[in-house]
C-alpha cells in the first residue's frame, strides 16, 4: 500500500486537465514529501483548486498520473477512493459546514459516520478538537451564528477530526480579517507539526503563506512556473512573481481580460 519512496506523499506526473475545450493544466509535475507544507500560488482561474480536486480524486485528469500515499488516485474504484479519503482532510474556501447541525455535531459528524466509537468518547474527542481551535465555548451555536473566522476554525477542526495524513486547504485565508488570518495560519502550522501531516495550501495570500510554508509552487498558464523556498520569493526578480508579491495590477498577468480593440469597440467601428 505504501509507496516505494516512503518519503513521497503526493506525486503528480505530467498531469493534463481541461474543462470542455478550456485547458487548465498542461503537464504538471509535482512531488510533495511527507510532512511538508507546500503553497500553491497563481492567478485566479489558474488551476490551483483543480489541482486539489485531482489530488483528492474529485476530478480525473485527461492524462498523467496522480499518486497519493502510493495509490494511483484516478484508477481507484469508489470504495478504495473513500478509503484513501479517510486519510485526507480538506478545508473548503468558505468552510462548507453543515448548516442544519450545531458546531458540536459538525465536528462529531466524521466520528459518527466513520467510526463505531461510543457517544461519550466522541464527546471528548470533539471537545478536544474544539479546544484546539479555541471554540469549545461555541459548541452549541449553529453555523449561521458564527463569524467568518470562527466558521473557518470550526471547519478546520472538522477537517482534522480523523487525524488525516494529508491536509488540503482551499484558500484558507480568503475573506477573513487580519486577526483570523493570523489565527488560522498559526493553527495550520501547529496542526501540521503536532500530527505530522503533509499540507497543501492553495492561496493568494502571500504574506501569511510565506511565514508558514516550506516551499512555494507558482502555477502559471497551466504549468509550474517556479518551485522555490519562501525566502527566494521575497528576493526574486522574476516579473510574474514580483507582480504577484507586490500586487501590481498589470504585468505578465494582464489587467485586461482579452477583448477586441478598445478604441474601435467604443467608437463602434
Amino acid at each position: 500500500m505504501t509507496s516505494p519512496h516512503t518519503s513521497e506523499m503526493i506525486a503528480l506526473k505530467d498531469v493534463r486537465f481541461s474543462y470542455a475545450d478550456r485547458s487548465i493544466l498542461k503537464g504538471v509535475n509535482l512531488t510533495i514529501k511527507k510532512g511538508e507544507i507546500v503553497a500553491i500560488m497563481g492567478g485566479s482561474g489558474g488551476g490551483k483548486t483543480t489541482l486539489l480536486g485531482l489530488i483528492s480524486g474529485r476530478l480525473k485528469p485527461q492524462s498523467g498520473s496522480v499518486i497519493v500515499d502510493g495509490l494511483d488516485v484516478p484508477k481507484l474504484n469508489k470504495s478504495n477512493l473513500y478509503g484513501l479519503r479517510r486519510k485526507i482532510g480538506m478545508l473548503f474556501q468558505f468552510g462548507a459546514l453543515f448548516t442544519d447541525l450545531s458546531v458540536f455535531d459538525n465536528i462529531a459528524f466524521p466520528y459518527r459516520e466513520q467510526t463505531n466509537l461510543p457517544e461519550d468518547i466522541i464527546r471528548s474527542l470533539v471537545l478536544l478538537k474544539l479546544e484546539a481551535v479555541g471554540l469549545r465555548g461555541a459548541k452549541d451555536l449553529k453555523p449561521a451564528e458564527l463569524s467568518g473566522g470562527m466558521a473557518r476554525r470550526v471547519a478546520l477542526a472538522r477537517a482534522v477530526a480523523l487525524d488525516p495524513a494529508v491536509m488540503l486547504y482551499d484558500e484558507p485565508f480568503t475573506g477573513l480579517d487580519p486577526i483570523s488570518v493570523g489565527i488560522i495560519g498559526r493553527l495550520i502550522k501547529r496542526l501540521n507539526r503536532a500530527l505530522g501531516m503533509t499540507s497543501v495550501i492553495v492561496t493568494h495570500d502571500l504574506n501569511e503563506t510565506l511565514r508558514l510554508v516550506d516551499r512555494v509552487v507558482v502555477l502559471s498558464d497551466g504549468k509550474i512556473h517556479r518551485d522555490m523556498a519562501p525566502e527566494q520569493i521575497r528576493t526574486t526578480d522574476d516579473p510574474f512573481i514580483r507582480q504577484f508579491a507586490d500586487g501590481l495590477p498589470d504585468g505578465p498577468v494582464p489587467f485586461h481580460y482579452p477583448g477586441p480593440d478598445y478604441l474601435s469597440e467604443i467608437l463602434g467601428r
Binding site: 483528492s56 474529485r58 479519503r85 479517510r86 485526507i88 473548503f92 462548507a96 466524521p110 459516520e113 466513520q114
Partner: peptide, 8 residues
C-alpha cells in the same frame, strides 16, 4: 462536496 471528501 465536504461530505464526499469525508468519504461519506
Amino acid at each position: 462536496a465536504a461530505m464526499d471528501m469525508m468519504a461519506v
